[in-house]
Amino acid sequence: MNRILPALLALLAATVAAPVSAYWEYGHETVATIGYRNARPETRAAIDRILRHAALLETPTCPARTIEQASVWADCIKTLGPRFSYSSNWHYQNVNVCKPFDLKSACRDGNCVSAQIERDMKLLKDKTLPMRERVQALAFLIHFMGDLHQPLHAGDRDDLGGNKVSAAYGIYTAERLNLHTIWDGYLAERAISTPPSLVRRYSPEEKAAIQAGSVEDWSRESWQVAHDATYATALGGDACGQVPPRAKLDQATIEKLVPIARLEVERGGLRLARLLDEAFG
């Protein structure tokens, strides 16, 4: 045990996400799988048909042949250098949680996650477009619906989505660990791994309760979660209070946050199902 703990801490320090990273593979893949399972059969068939053409993307090191692979394609292509650098700002919309909700300012020229979700929907609905464009729009849509429901991609305090907030996660106190990394990875993985499984067929009543609203409504909701849960718990109850040298999420706080993080993944998946049904309806 004495040897394992230092190794874990070293791994944490080495794998801290960069500012443009989002929902590690587990989070994105789970959102995608929920969406796929809860879409109509004809929608699933349409998704499969389009993803059969994933080779048209010409990104062999970033495959998108399945919905799970497609869910992380938009992060994988960051490794391809300037080829896709234009999309780096599309993964988030940093609306200040300590000011009135203002999506318009955060989405100038469409360079934000919610604007790109709406753009991808338009592209998917247009059957006259080249298949390569539709494959890319589908992969982006699947990924961005995960991003939108990671609260620190919807709201922040001008701190790169919490990347500038040094934080401790339970006993893990790696020097480079920050609030964004915690919500992107460690908390998301704990939430998704907590039973019962989030990947299932949801009832019509469950879907209706979560799927209602617009992309802007969902943006505002995720922004509110960033204020009420993400920052408030890290900063001693005041989301807009002074940021300490090291925010601390103790075990009791983590346990309170797990249901919130689970709900965000659930929302992302079921809302993705709705958009996919609309795109291919």
Rank of each mutant, 00 (worst) to 15 (best):
F144M: 09
D156K: 10
G110K: 12
Q136A: 12
C112S: 08
N163K: 12
R157V: 10
A154F: 01
A115D: 10
S88G: 00
A106H: 14
Q136N: 10
S166E: 02
Y92F: 15
K122M: 09
Q150P: 00
R134N: 05
C107E: 01
F144Y: 13
G162W: 06
L187E: 02
E175I: 15
N89A: 08
D158L: 11
A154S: 13
R134M: 08
W90F: 09
V165C: 03
N163R: 11
P100R: 04
D147F: 05
Y172C: 06
L177D: 03
V95T: 11
S193T: 05
R176C: 06
E118I: 08
I142R: 04
K164N: 06
Y169K: 00
T173H: 11
A188H: 05
P151W: 01
Y169N: 00
R108W: 03
S197E: 06
V199S: 03
R134H: 03
A174M: 08
F144T: 05
T181H: 14
L198A: 06
D109T: 13
V135A: 02
K104W: 09
H91I: 02
S114P: 08
M121V: 11
D156A: 09
Y172V: 09
D158R: 07
C112T: 11
F144V: 00
L187N: 00
N89I: 00
V97F: 02
D159W: 15
A191W: 00
V95K: 01
G170L: 12
L177P: 10
D102I: 12
K99I: 04
S105P: 02
N163Q: 09
R119P: 04
Q93P: 06
K125L: 05
L141H: 03
M145K: 02
L152E: 09
G185V: 13
A191I: 12
A106S: 12
P196E: 00
V199R: 01
E133R: 15
E118R: 06
N94H: 09
K125W: 03
F101Y: 15
L138A: 03
D147C: 13
V97W: 03
Q93V: 14
R200I: 03
L177E: 10
R134A: 04
S105L: 13
I142D: 02
N178S: 12
C98G: 09
R132G: 07
D109Q: 11
V95Q: 01
A115W: 01
D109K: 14
L177M: 09
L138W: 08
D156G: 01
R190V: 13
H153G: 06
G146K: 04
F101G: 10
T194Q: 02
S114C: 00
N96A: 07
G162F: 11
Q93R: 12
A167E: 01
V97M: 09
P100D: 06
Q93C: 14
A191T: 05
N96Y: 15
Y92E: 04
R119Q: 11
L177T: 02
G146N: 04
D159M: 14
S88P: 00
C98Y: 13
K99L: 14
N96L: 08
P151Q: 04
C107Y: 01
H180W: 04
S197A: 15
R108M: 07
P196L: 08
D102C: 12
D126V: 15
Y172R: 04
F101Q: 03
N89F: 13
L179T: 07
R119H: 11
C98M: 10
V113Y: 00
Q93H: 15
